[in-house]
Amino acid sequence: MHYTRPTDDRQTVYHLPLTGTIKAGGTYVIAGAYYGNKKDENSYIKVDSYDQEWYENGKLIDFTINTNSNLGNGFALTYGNPALTPITYLWKANDSSVTIFNDTNTYPNLYDPSFIDAIYFFTGVMDSSNTGYWAKLVLGIKSNTMYKNTFELDPAQQAY
């Protein structure tokens, strides 16, 4: 799992090797920094169990999106690829250059072999043609909104 966000006015990527098995049709919850009191009955989200915690520099990672920065915020799930950078392309529009996938109607996008899923929030990390490196989609941030990104997988274990 990879997470990119602005840190000290530069784009930073954090990496988390996942542990365990993600069962088909199951879920895998990663816990970051917590900003409420779990005993508060008015807490909107209560996470009492999770599959893994994500620590950076000895603290639970903060997933707060900095809306004052024009740098990107996103997640990518890959098979391997532990050195993923914010400007590594995980997908591209099909330009018919790959012979076996030369039908752009059937195969409109081509993906890096390590790619499983990716998404940007608020602002993506874009190239000069305004194409996202990790993902095509950038979800806007709205007040009191939660996003849940899901995809189908066969049972899998981390490769690196």
Rank of each mutant, 00 (worst) to 15 (best):
L77N: 00
E53D: 11
G72I: 00
R10V: 14
G32V: 00
V47M: 07
S114W: 08
K59N: 12
L16M: 08
P113K: 12
P113Q: 12
L77G: 00
N73T: 11
A118N: 01
D95T: 07
Q52D: 03
T12A: 07
A33S: 07
D112H: 15
D40C: 04
N68P: 04
K148A: 08
D127T: 05
I22F: 11
L139P: 01
I45C: 04
Y147C: 02
D103L: 06
Q157P: 04
T145D: 05
P113A: 11
E56Q: 15
T99P: 10
I87W: 13
A33I: 07
D9Y: 13
S69K: 08
R5C: 06
H2I: 01
T12G: 04
Y111G: 01
D8M: 14
Y44E: 07
Q11D: 06
S97P: 03
N130Y: 12
Y44I: 12
G36W: 11
Q52T: 02
Y160W: 12
T4A: 03
K59M: 15
Y28I: 03
K46I: 06
K92H: 11
T27G: 10
D51V: 05
F115T: 01
D51Q: 10
N102P: 04
Y120C: 01
G25V: 04
V138G: 02
N130L: 09
S143N: 15
T145E: 09
